[in-house]
Each structure stands twice: as C-alpha cells, then as structure tokens.
C-alpha cells in the first residue's frame, strides 16, 4: 500500500519539490509534528489503560457491572471523534486549540475499548487455573497480580494495539480544527492544492502516520513478548 502511494508523487512529479524535497524543506516542523502526533497517540492509551484496569477488574468480578460497562462504553464509542474534540472545551473549559482536548477525548475512547477487553481478559482465565491458585492460598489481590493479570496480558495487549492504531488516525483529524500534528501535512496539502494538485505533504503525512502506527504497534508486540515468556517457549516447541 505504501509502495502504491509512493508512486503517486512520481505521476504528479512536475510539481516541485518532490516528497523528499518537501521533507527536507520542512524538516523541523515535520519532526515536531511527528513528535506531537506520537505523544497525542500514546498518552491517551497510557491514561486509558490505567483507568481501564480497575474498571475491567470490577466488571469481571461483579455480575451487574459487566452489562453496565458494555452499554456505557458502546455509547461512548458511538460518538464521532470530531464531535468529541469540538465538545471538549465546553465540558472541560479549555480553549478549542488546547491539545488537552484531544488527549481527554482519545482517553475516553481508549477506556471505552479497553475496559471491556480487560474484563474479558480477566474473565477468560481458565477456571481450573483460578481455582488452583485459590486452593494454594493466594489472596484475591495476590491472585489478580500474580495469576489473572499476567494471563490476561495477551488479550489486553491485543486491545492496546487496536487502540493505538486507531488513535494515530484519529489524532490527525484534530488538525482540521488547528491542533498541530501530522494532520497539518494533510490540511497544508489541501490548501496548497487549491490551484492544482500538490501531493508531497499529503503523501508524506500518510507515510509518516502509517510508519508511526506500525512502530507503536511493534512496541506493544515486543512488550507483550517480554511480559509473556511462557508463550514464547510454547511457540518454539
């Protein structure tokens, strides 16, 4: 896909400068936007995870909490991201361009996605393993920390991967209301194309977004591997 898109500037190659030329001309801004984009994508996932763990634990332990969690998170997930970005200032009292709006809005999405995943992951620990841990004398809290949570890691990291990849795309949308990140490449490209197609910033933005998503995804995969050594030995058998 990236290769296919890379060919487009070649077709429209008459418009100087090309992709690399554009990048070297705007290196400082682009790297700054990339840095911000990464932060705005990752921070909500970290905040979301911290909030989701207790929520998901509660939902996996209390019969009433699970359906409540599913309906509330389903409802939150329904709201279009742009609407949430725009509505944030009147809820938080922030300015419209404040990046906090993006962080809070995306944290809400992450919690909506992840709390349910955590609940499912903790609930999916095999009954015999849970019973054996209790029988050996683990207290409920010890069992959570030493048994349930480690075994739920693969499920939770799968949810984190979805969240982080979605966030990279959603963060870009915030550029249309003026938040500076890689989405600026799209809006700039759009404005520069008003007289005739000008691809370099748009394609550069797409490439950087995809690369950022892949890198963040890879980081989570590596963390997952580090946290679950027993699955590696299984794979090698």
């Amino acid at each position: 896909m990236i290769a296919a898109l890379g060919r487009i500037p070649a077709q429209g190659g008459q418009s100087p400068p090309g992709l690399l030329g554009y990048f070297s001309a705007h290196r400082t801004e682009v790297l700054h936007w990339l840095w911000w984009h990464a932060w705005l994508s990752v921070l909500p996932v970290l905040i979301g995870l911290v909030v989701s763990l207790p929520l998901g634990y509660l939902a996996s332990r209390r019969r009433w909490a699970y359906p409540a969690l599913v309906s509330v998170s389903g409802l939150l997930y329904t709201i279009p991201s742009l609407a949430l970005f725009v509505a944030m200032p009147s809820i938080l009292g922030t300015k419209i361009l404040d990046p906090v709006n993006v962080v809070v809005a995306l944290s809400i999405y992450t919690v909506a996605l992840l709390a349910r995943v955590v609940a499912d992951g903790l609930g999916a620990v095999p009954e015999d393993v849970a019973q054996a841990a209790t029988a050996m004398g683990y207290t409920p809290l010890q069992r959570l920390a030493k048994v349930d949570l480690p075994l739920a890691v693969p499920v939770i990291t799968a949810g984190l991967r979805v969240a982080v990849v979605a966030n990279v795309s959603l963060v870009a949308i915030a550029a249309t209301i003026g938040v500076p990140e890689l989405g600026q490449l799209f809006t700039n490209g759009f404005q520069l194309s008003s007289t005739g197609p000008y691809y370099p910033p748009i394609v550069l933005g797409i490439v950087l977004c995809v690369v950022l998503a892949l890198v963040l995804d890879l980081v989570i995969v590596l963390v997952n591997r580090a946290l679950t050594p027993w699955r590696r030995t299984e794979a090698h058998r």
Partner: peptide, 16 residues
C-alpha cells in the same frame, strides 16, 4: 487499509 489515516486518505482522494 484500516491503518491508513482517514483524513489523509480523504484529502488525497479529493485532490486526486
């Protein structure tokens, strides 16, 4: 395809 940023795709296609 889901990994592509929707805004980028939208603007690219519009420009093309």
């Amino acid at each position: 395809l889901r990994a592509l940023p929707t805004l980028g795709l939208l603007i690219l296609l519009y420009v093309v």
